[in-house]
């Protein structure tokens, strides 16, 4: 049976991965999982997902951002740079700017994700957001 699309979850929290995967599977998506940024980059090349769900805070705070950066700017990923990225984090957005951690200056040229969600994800909201992103980028 044809699926609604292939989604890559890049996250180091196995419980979060498990529940997110169940939500997506139940709605008819195919799901691939990577547990860290490096594995994430490998999987992107391997399975060419239709959408990437990326955790901001993995092993190091900036692992998510560095994956973003490679995906969008590295010549190695020229064929994949258009894949939409939904960034996810349990670090609640600071008032005003979503990605300002402590020093906004440091965040300068990092490519921005296409959308953002705070953990915990509600199934309905997640599916709406994923569907909207899929439509925007199809």
């Amino acid at each position: 049976m044809a699926t609604k699309g292939k989604i890559l979850i890049v996250d180091d929290d196995p419980d979060f991965v498990k529940t997110t995967k169940m939500i997506l599977l139940a709605d008819g998506y195919e799901v691939v999982v990577a547990n860290d940024g490096k594995q994430g980059l490998d999987k992107i090349k391997e399975v060419k997902p239709d959408l990437i769900m990326l955790d901001i805070m993995m092993e190091s705070i900036f692992e998510g951002f560095s994956l973003m950066s490679s995906l969008r700017t590295s010549p190695d990923f020229a064929d994949f740079s258009h894949i939409p990225v939904l960034m996810v984090s349990s670090v609640r957005a600071d008032t005003g700017s979503r990605f300002s951690f402590s020093d906004e200056e440091d965040m300068g040229d990092i490519p921005q994700p296409d959308d953002y969600m705070d953990k915990p994800l509600r199934p309905k909201e997640l599916l709406e957001k994923v569907a909207a992103l899929r439509q925007r980028f199809s």
Binding site: D15, T19, S90, K119, P120, P123
Partner: peptide, 9 residues
């Protein structure tokens, strides 16, 4: 958040 998401699912 992980616990919450289990409950949601």
């Amino acid at each position: 958040a992980a616990i919450f998401q289990y409950i949601e699912v």
